[in-house]
Every structure is written in C-alpha cells, then in structure tokens.
Design a protein around this nucleic acid. Structure first.
Lengths: 225, 225
DNA sequence: TAAGCTATACATACGCTGTAAGGCGGCCTA
DNA sequence: TAGGCCGCCTTACAGCGTATGTATAGCTTA
C-alpha cells in the first residue's frame, strides 16, 4: 500500500541545503542576482518555492550560503607559509577570478552579518599572513583594508563595464555617443573613447598594474617610510 | 476664466522631473534603495505612481538622474587648474563625502549606460587633470582606474561595516561572536575584534592612509620607476 | 465664448517578488 | 501496527515595476 505507492512514485532525491545552494548558485551565475528568486530555485529543483524554507531560513540566509561558497573558492596560503607579498598577490588574483566567475557576488562579499566558515577562514588567513610576516597590528589592518578596497572596487568596475576586445569597446563607445548629444564638450573622454576603440582594454593588465603598485607601496611603507 | 479656475482650485505645483528627482533623492537618502519605489515617490508627492512616468521614462531613468545628481555634488578642479596630486586628493575626499551622504549610491556610480552631464563632466575633468599635468594617455588610464577602484571599494566597505566608535565596534563584534560558534578557530580575527573594541576604527584615517599611499606610489611611478 | 486638442493624472490590471500559515501524506520509531 | 513528525504543497498577502485605457484640466484657436 503505502510502500507500494512509494515504490511506484520513484520519489526524487530529497532536498538538502547543499542541493538548494547548488541550484541557487547555478541560477545566479547564469542570470545574475535578479534571476535568483525562490520560485526559480524551486523550479530548478522540481519543487515549490516554500519547500526551500525547510532547508534555508530566508533568502538572506541562502545568499549568505552562496557568498560563503564563493569565499571557499578563494585560495589563501595558511599564515606563515609564504612571505606576505607572494601570498597576498596570489590571493588578490584568486579573489578577482572568483568574482569574475560569480559576478552577482561583487557587492555582497563584504560585511555580511552572518559570515560562514569559509568567509572567516579567508579573513583570518589574510590577517594571519600579514601578522606572521611581521606587520604590526595597525599596519596589518591598514594593508588589508587597502588591498580589499582595491580588489573589490576593481571588481565593481569590471562588472559594470562589460567590454574587453577593441571591437566591444568601440561598440559601447558608439552606444554612449548615441546617448550623449554633446560629447564634444568632453574632449578628454573623446580621447579615451578613440584610444580604447583602437587598442582595446585588458582588465588583467590593468588589475595587476594597480595591484603591484599597491604591493610595492606597502613594502616600502613597511620598510620604514 | 481659465486663470480664475486656476486660482480657485489651488492646483498643486505641477509635477516636474526636478520635483520627482528631489523626492526620490530624499526617499533614498532616508530609507535606502529599498525604500525607493515608484509608489513611495508618488506618495511623497501626493500623486499616483503612474503619474511619475510623465516625467521619467522608467525607474532606471530615475536612478540615472539621482546618480547624476550625486556626481554633481563631487568637486573636481577643471583640467589644468591644480597639480594632479592636489586635485585628485581633493576629488577622492569629495567622492567619499558624497557617497557617505548618499550611501544607496555606492554600487551604482560606475558604468551607467546613460551617464548624465554631471557624470561626464566629472570623468572628463579627472582625465583632463592627469593629461594636462603630463600623464601619458595609458598612465592616466592606469591612474584613474586605480584611484577609482580604491575609492569605490573603500566606500563599499564603509557602507557595509556601519560602526565607528569603539562601543559600536564591540557591539557588532559581540553580535558576530554570537553568530559564530567556533570563533576560537580564527585567532587573528579574535585579535582584530579585541583590538578594535579597545581602540575603535576611524574611517577617515583609514581612507586617507590608503589614498596617500596610492598617490605616493603614482607619483613615484610617474617619476620614472 | 465655444470647440477641440494635448498634456497630465488616475484606475485597473498583470506577473513578478519574499514569505506567513495551515494541511496532508509518507517515513521512522515504538 | 499506531503515533508522531518531517518534508512538501497549497493558499494567501502585501509589495514591486509598468502596460494599458480613460478622465480631466488648460491652452489654443476660431
């Protein structure tokens, strides 16, 4: 009876927090944050929206889980393993890579009120790396604040200016020029537009220029500036 | 006649784009972006939501207008007036101040597809300031990208970590400790929590430390290295 | 002064959002 | 085999942006 029904119905794999998060991640990666609705996640799992609440306290909780997953993808050497500069450079590049894989996460990485274990591990490792390599506490805070501001700020730019090749650049520039009647009032922007359309814009080069400049500056500051 | 009717009925001041933007700005400043709904703006003006569409093409257009207003509050010296370092330092501080008055704007300043006149003026002035002070084109792009990444990234941190005094810090830290059972797994974060709770955290100092470090680095880079 | 046009505001409605509340059927334990 | 519990579903509410259609107020012209 009951069991027959059970067998016959081929119950689908039970929902879990893990499965919910995985589906949500796929949705957000594909369609951005605005595609991430409880109903859409449910649909993806063949389930009604409300069923998700058995595994997730709220949408905020769901997003917390996603963010922690992203932090889990970021590689940081454990404190004391590498010199600070190598470790911090690697981490910065890893953060940018993760944020490019998950662009929806860009404004959400910082200051979550319920940080997950991966989030905490990451921040602890950064602070630890600096402290173990001799940074006084306040300087370590300065350095971390500066690096993270740059990394997240750059990711923000990269998220909002979605062009890379010279062709894409000139496409966007043309579109902007169409929207802006008095473009000639802004001669320096015209220069940017024409130069960019000629040579394109390489985000990786740009990112690493700023990153190395900051790391150089921190090194010099530490040495005694 | 017509004019009498006008006088008699005490018609309210007619809606204008200006008035709509002003009301929207007040709403966003007070209650953040999630308080900024068409219905709320309408309510603020004694008008139905749909009436706003006579003066604003869409919510996106409305937000574009708000962002341009924020850019209008940012002070930049016209190209060639000041040496680049002074001008850029002033602008950076002015941007941060504007973003603190309008925290809802933080993730939205960059890469709008329909930039307003103030937005364009601002970007043009920054680029112009660097070019007129001798920055080669590519270096000016590098510098602008780096500075803006830092400024916007810092504003992002500041938006999401809303504490300032030592008391507020320790309050937040206590709250986080309550949410994180295994806090002792993260010794360096424990240090941060205790140190911060002792001494507080001054955003202005922090911001200007990073800013000056970056300006120093750019100056040195330009000088030849 | 009267007619007609236009610009503005309103009312209604659609499909979407997050989630509170309650019902029900299948599973595990006693 | 009985009881209870857990996981899922259904329904419902208040809010969102905005498409669509309609009424009206005021100006323009005759």
């Amino acid at each position: 009876m009951a069991q027959e029904t059970t067998t016959r119905r081929r119950r689908r794999a039970p929902l879990t927090r893990e499965r919910v998060l995985r589906a949500a991640l796929a949705l957000a990666d594909e369609g951005g944050l605005e595609a991430l609705s409880m109903r859409n996640v449910g649909k993806q799992l063949g389930v009604e929206a409300m069923s998700l609440y058995n595994h997730v306290a709220s949408k905020e909780d769901l997003v917390d889980g996603l963010i922690d997953f992203v932090f889990g993808e970021i590689e940081v050497a454990p404190p004391g393993e590498l010199d600070w500069r190598t470790a911090m450079r690697q981490r910065a590049i890893s953060v940018r890579a993760a944020l490019n894989r998950h662009r929806w996460a860009v404004g959400l990485m910082e200051g979550r009120l319920s940080p997950g274990p991966e989030t905490l591990r990451n921040h602890d490792a950064v602070m630890g790396c600096l402290r173990e390599d001799g940074f006084p506490f306040r300087d370590a805070v300065h350095a971390m604040s500066l690096m993270d501001a740059y990394i997240y700020g750059f990711a923000l730019q990269e998220k909002h200016l979605p062009f890379e090749t010279a062709d894409e650049v000139s496409e966007v520039m043309d579109l902007q020029r169409a929207n802006v009647p008095a473009m000639d009032d802004y001669p320096y922007l015209v220069e940017v537009a024409t130069e960019m359309a000629k040579a394109g814009y390489d985000y990786t080069t740009e990112f690493e220029f700023g990153l190395d400049l900051i790391l150089d500056a921190l090194e010099r500051f530490r040495a005694g500036g």
